[in-house]
Amino acid sequence: MSKCAICGNEQDQKYRPFCSKRCADVDLHRWLSGGYAIPAVEEDDPSDDDQEQNR
């Protein structure tokens, strides 16, 4: 049987891919609080450079 995505215990079919409602709620909280956010690297906007040169 597969492991719980949060704690590593065996999954419960009712809460798949988690073992319990608690682990499912922990995962939901991480999504809602931004815990799973993907870090972004902002690139320089070429239009900003054009505006500075025109000043």
Rank of each mutant, 00 (worst) to 15 (best):
M1R: 05
M1K: 03
S2K: 06
S2F: 05
S2I: 04
K3L: 07
C4N: 03
C4P: 01
C4M: 03
C4E: 03
A5N: 09
I6P: 00
I6Y: 05
I6K: 06
I6H: 03
C7Y: 06
C7I: 08
N9S: 09
N9T: 04
N9I: 01
N9L: 06
N9R: 09
E10R: 10
E10P: 02
Q11T: 14
Q11W: 04
Q11F: 02
D12G: 01
D12R: 05
D12P: 00
D12E: 14
K14Y: 06
K14F: 06
K14P: 00
K14S: 09
R16A: 13
R16V: 10
P17F: 06
F18K: 00
F18E: 01
C19H: 08
S20I: 11
S20E: 13
S20D: 14
R22M: 09
R22Q: 14
C23A: 14
C23F: 12
A24E: 15
A24D: 10
A24K: 13
A24F: 09
A24H: 11
D25I: 03
D25W: 02
V26C: 08
V26Q: 08
V26N: 05
D27S: 15
D27V: 08
L28R: 15
L28S: 12
H29W: 08
W31C: 07
W31I: 09
L32G: 04
L32A: 06
L32C: 02
S33K: 06
G34C: 10
G34F: 02
G35Q: 05
Y36H: 06
A37H: 03
P39R: 02
A40W: 00
A40D: 01
A40K: 02
A40Q: 05
A40L: 05
V41E: 07
E42G: 00
E42N: 02
E43R: 08
E43V: 04
E43W: 04
E43C: 02
D44Y: 01
D44K: 01
D44I: 03
D44W: 01
D45T: 04
D45M: 04
P46T: 09
P46E: 13
S47C: 08
S47Q: 14
S47Y: 09
D48M: 05
D48P: 00
D48G: 02
D49M: 14
D49S: 15
D50A: 10
Q51M: 13
Q51N: 13
E52A: 10
E52S: 08
Q53N: 08
Q53K: 12
Q53P: 00
N54Y: 11
R55M: 08
R55N: 12
R55I: 06
